[in-house]
């Protein structure tokens, strides 16, 4: 009972001499939407890649449904990933395939259905993110960035995953499109009933899509709590980030 869907404890990761994660502890309950915030280069993407198994943490444990997932074999890892959908920062659509095949890629690669059925499912998922069926025949390169993100979102939910990971869903979008993507994420989350973990440095987006916000700083989660509490937070690191001040404990890496 009350077993967390995703549980990270003491996750560390270094690239050469650069220690990126120094002990991340985070739990995400089933059906919850957690947003990890933090400056550029604080290891938000690395955290998500560790959860996905794209990177192997140096130490610590990552559990999904109570099961340790670090160090799994390729086949076992794939079984875990089948219940995970991921929206990449740039959409990461495959340019060589039409949009509908992009959306249905997971269904086809896992042989969950035939091509015709996959095309139907793709059309339904595209409709969920507000795109017409005809878009399915287009090539990803012909779409605007906002539309590519929506297609990426449709691909992330195509296999009805239990966990969806969002990497900077609103970065590079204009405010209206960003808000639209936020609404879609909230909507999709409720509709699919999935557990969501997002990373963002956009506070507005974080407040909107998160049930809970966690702040990553110097490779650790330094604060986690309700979005409503973050504005009154006295922790200088959180305060500086939320209000976007130059002065404070967070020093941006600036090269002379």
């Amino acid at each position: 009972m009350d077993q967390p869907k995703i549980e990270l404890s003491g996750v560390t990761k270094a690239f050469g001499a650069k220690q990126v994660l120094t002990g991340v502890d985070l739990t995400v309950a089933e059906g919850e939407s957690v947003v990890i915030i933090g400056g550029s280069g604080t290891g938000k993407s690395v955290t998500v890649k560790c959860i996905l198994g794209l990177l192997k943490p140096d130490a610590g444990s990552i559990k999904i449904d109570g099961r340790e997932v670090t160090g799994l074999s390729v086949g076992e890892r794939d079984k875990v990933n089948r219940q995970v959908g991921m929206l990449f920062q740039g959409g990461a659509l495959f340019d060589s395939l039409p949009v509908w095949e992009n959306v249905a890629f997971g269904l086809l690669s896992r042989k969950q259905c035939g091509r015709e059925e996959a095309r139907e499912i793709a059309a339904r998922k595209l409709a969920m993110v507000g795109l017409k069926r005809e878009i399915g025949e287009a090539q990803p390169a012909d779409l605007s960035i906002g539309m590519q993100k929506r297609v990426g979102l449709a691909r992330a939910i195509a296999t009805d995953p239990e966990i969806i990971l969002f990497d900077e869903p609103t970065t590079g979008l204009d405010p209206i499109m960003a808000d639209m993507i936020n609404e879609l994420i909230v909507h999709v989350n409720q509709e699919v009933g999935a557990t969501a973990l997002s990373i963002s440095h956009d506070m507005e987006s974080a407040r909107k899509i998160g049930d809970r916000i966690a702040m990553l700083y110097q490779g650790k989660i330094v604060w986690a709590g309700d979005p409503a509490d973050i504005d009154g937070e006295t922790d200088p690191v959180v305060d500086q980030f939320v209000h976007g001040r130059v002065d404070g404990p967070i020093k941006m890496a600036i090269r002379a």
Binding site: G53, N81, R82, A92, L93, F94, F105, S109, R110
Partner: peptide, 12 residues
């Protein structure tokens, strides 16, 4: 553009 990572997450 992370398409190779996307392939891995989509069981390919």
């Amino acid at each position: 553009t992370e398409q190779i990572d996307a392939l891995t997450t989509l069981s390919t």
